[in-house]
Amino acid sequence: MGVPLEAGRPVRSRDAGAARRVRFGGTAGMVGAAILLCFILIAVFAPVLSPYSPHASNFTPWQPPSAAHLLGTDDYGQDVLTQVLWGARTSIVVGVAAGLLASSLGVLVGLVAGYTGGWIGEVLMRLVDLLQVIPTIVLLIIIAAFVPSLGLGGEILIIGFLSWVWMARSIRSQVLSESARGYVEASRVIGMSNAEIMFREILPNLLPVILANLVLVVTGAILAEASLDFLGIGSPNVISWGTMLSLAFSTNAILYNAWWWIAPPGFCIATLCFAFILIGNGVLAMYAQRRGSMAQH
């Protein structure tokens, strides 16, 4: 949830350390992909992997980890491990769905603003500037607080509609540099329509940048979802890592020294987002290597 890293502007790989960095980026990207795969498997097979039913709450509360409960039990007498496994579903679904929504919006705005330019481009970019200054995470919290019973779908929608700004900015600057290349002019000469040039010619060349930005948007969406759930204004009836932390906080888990309830959900949120960041970084490193020191900006 810190500085949105600017994807799409890889360092020019001219210096000696560059090759090594690319290799490092590639390896890190594979590690990220492996971690992500683990989480996806956990999400898919949660019913099989969970030792207990996610709704079973008949255990002794506040038990530290034991053989019967590897991650102990919570205040409600629920098995923490079961909750953690089922929580993977919420984070991945909301993160990816909101990320895809935001990315589609961002790519659309960035393409139109960068390619058509003119007053439309100007208006769109002023809108982007404006949304960048308004603290969106705070706006998100406020909107969620006002909308009664948001639910998962609502969370996806508002996170998606408030997270496209970075993508739009990054795509626009890429489109500007693409537009200066010969093939765009050539397509125009042979009579292709603007829409065709934008979506059939320019868009495929942007895919690495889109992918690198997408994983950052997904990371932001996962963290935003966790924050809303922590505040109890997301989807409190769905098992999620954010809701687990929310319940742990409101039932004073800290005063019970229930580290087994507090540590796992946050660790999972951070590790899942970490995996996405590594993947994005790996994509950018490979992209930078392929294009060499040319054609940046």
Binding site: G2, A28, S227, F230, F249, G266, L272, C273, F274
Partner: peptide
Amino acid sequence: SFYLHAVPYFWTAMLLLL
């Protein structure tokens, strides 16, 4: 830094408090 960048603020807060 990559890892810390992915950590939710409220979770570090809870761990520090604990």
